[in-house]
Write a protein that binds this DNA or RNA. Structure first.
Lengths: 338, 338
DNA sequence: TCGATTTACTAAACCGATTTAGTTCTATAT
DNA sequence: ATATAGAACTAAATCGGTTTAGTAAATCGA
């Protein structure tokens, strides 16, 4: 059986109340002798408080619900969890992770289960940056949206990647290398991420006075096979691009495949920049793929820190854009002389 | 404020005891009329029991600790969590996920934190198949090891991949395609996975009477760059292999890189089989990589089912090897005529 | 018709902590 | 010498449920 506070108290010859006060540092009016005795007995017996009992009484569980659509179970964004968990750990909070698989009924059940466990706050995280509407039940406790933005920005705190900034840096990186014909392969499904990345690409083209035109955009699904087809379409045109900026790394891997089939060498004949910095992909292909990194770890930390802020200060909701740095590998070089 | 059982009871004009019994189905001696009234009030008020209070009294939390070294935060084995969570959900259990980052001090803290929360049982999961010794504190509650084996097999239940079977199938797949010179790139660090996969490879060579010899093994680290160097060594020999079986997919991606640099085309000039079926890697390279799949989802499910078995039946510890199927893509073909 | 069951409920204990409102006892002030 | 304040503790209430023991009224058997 586990050692209870009662056991410690009895062994130390004091009441449970006294023992509780000593072990919680509320010992202003406890004699130094008693204090020492209780502490000694507690550690001798290896006493650990029952968190359930404590939480029931104090109405705070130090548990944070982490609700995600599919982060936990996919290889993409685990760093968000890591970041959040690190901060939680540091402050003696525990994360209760759960997955909804995008199913509203599961989401409802999950949120209820978490609230039944009296979580103090919640992080509502998504795999992709989009616009979300968390279940209303979460409105009753501090909730921070991670990797998305809420429909009603006044209702929830949120942190999302600075897609525009990251994409701008990527395209400028290509422009700086001397490219004037920079194409983009995008996912036409149009989540905020896609719209912002394409807007940034277009803005750089304009600002720098680079080539533009419909033959410099191709649409594809978010996988290598589809990316390869899109890249082939771009590269087989009359005046092909010398660089391609891809919506994500898997499409960029597709661009490698298309280039290889056309006898083009990367980065000599074609420069490529991806997005997401998916290490498994970026390092599986040759040369390594230069890519824009999603700041998953930082966003996870920020979300959790914001949760703590909401719990402590009772601060109001806040939004934050997190910068996306470029990770350079070997897929960018000055354009060849044609 | 949340609705308490007391509120439901008052509104229904009964005692809390009666309300509790009705809502828990222990209503043998409650009149049909009262039963209906309590239920109606409960759903009208949207009553949800406070799980902390219930657990404190019943001494069961329906929470399972999921302790992993780094699964949650890396892109490799999330499917184990998914499988475990699916089964847990189905039986109204909740998973408390945590990461230890291989640090014993963190592991100790984590396990204590979970036990403080009165978890009913635990799953001790690892990223790689190895031999582990879970903290002794876990010996007091039902614990299942996931993706590894315990030092003391009598102490814990466990489930691990059938590495030998999977590797055997992989090498036989190459042999069946007509290859007689099948090399292996292995990680010499020697975890059980590496030893078993190499043993299987060697066994198939012997059984089938295929070529063998020191020039058919190369050692490498578990990444593409190192795999490429190892593959280059194999392929630049006097009598190069026509097929390579790799310890993992990242090394296999390295083999692609080496082949490409030597002007060899896969699968025309070289067949490759990987291990892990890391989709991000296997589909980023061309042609798609044939690989052996680790049954993460199935292992996760089995582990959780075993936890439930231990909780319900009080059954004894059990071990289980889970089969690893081959996933065929395009990297295997009959050897070319040299 | 009277004691024995059965039916339908409730009061109170309990889970393991925290916290409030007291209670002793000693030391100081008047 | 007596009221007063502070020091050092404890009894009891509390959190929100579950469960045991018990009670009052209705039904049954002989």
């Amino acid at each position: 059986m586990r050692v209870r506070l009662q056991d410690v108290a009895e062994r130390a010859g004091v009441s449970a109340a006294t023992a509780s006060m000593v072990l919680n540092g509320k010992d202003d009016s406890i004699s130094g002798e008693t204090r020492a005795r209780v502490r000694a007995v507690a550690s001798e017996l290896g006493y650990r408080p029952n968190v359930l009992a404590r939480s029931l009484r104090s109405q705070r569980t130090r548990a944070i619900g982490f609700i995600s659509d599919e982060i936990v179970t996919t290889p993409y964004a685990g760093a968000m969890i890591q970041g959040a968990q690190y901060v939680a750990d540091e402050h003696d909070y525990v994360l209760l992770l759960s997955n909804t698989d995008y199913r509203p009924d599961v989401e409802k059940r999950t949120v209820e289960a978490l609230l039944d466990r009296q979580i103090d706050a919640a992080v509502y995280a998504t795999m992709y940056h989009r616009i979300v509407e968390p279940p209303t039940a979460l409105g009753h406790i501090p909730t921070v949206i991670l990797d998305s933005r809420p429909k009603d920005e006044a209702a929830f705190s949120w942190v999302a990647p600075d897609e525009f900034g990251g994409a701008t840096a990527a395209v400028e990186h290509l422009a700086d290398a001397g490219h004037r014909r920079i194409a983009m392969i995008n996912d036409p499904m149009g989540p905020p991420a896609a719209i912002e990345r394409e807007a940034a690409w277009r803005t750089v083209l304009e600002t720098r006075g680079l080539d533009d035109g419909p033959d410099l955009v191709a649409h594809a699904d978010s996988d290598a096979a589809s990316g390869a087809m899109a890249a082939a379409r771009l590269l087989e045109g009359d005046d092909p691009p010398t660089a391609i900026f891809c919506f994500n790394d898997r499409m960029a891997a597709g661009a490698y495949i298309a280039a290889s089939r056309l006898g083009l060498s990367i980065p000599r004949d074609l420069s490529v920049v991806g997005f997401d910095n998916q290490v498994l992909v970026a390092e599986a292909i040759d040369p390594g793929l230069t890519s824009v990194q999603l700041p998953h770890d930082e966003m996870g930390r920020w979300a959790m820190e914001q949760v703590l802020r909401l719990l402590d200060d009772g601060a109001g909701p806040q939004g934050k854009r997190m910068p996306c740095p470029i990770v350079e590998r070997g897929s960018v070089a000055p354009p060849g002389q044609l």
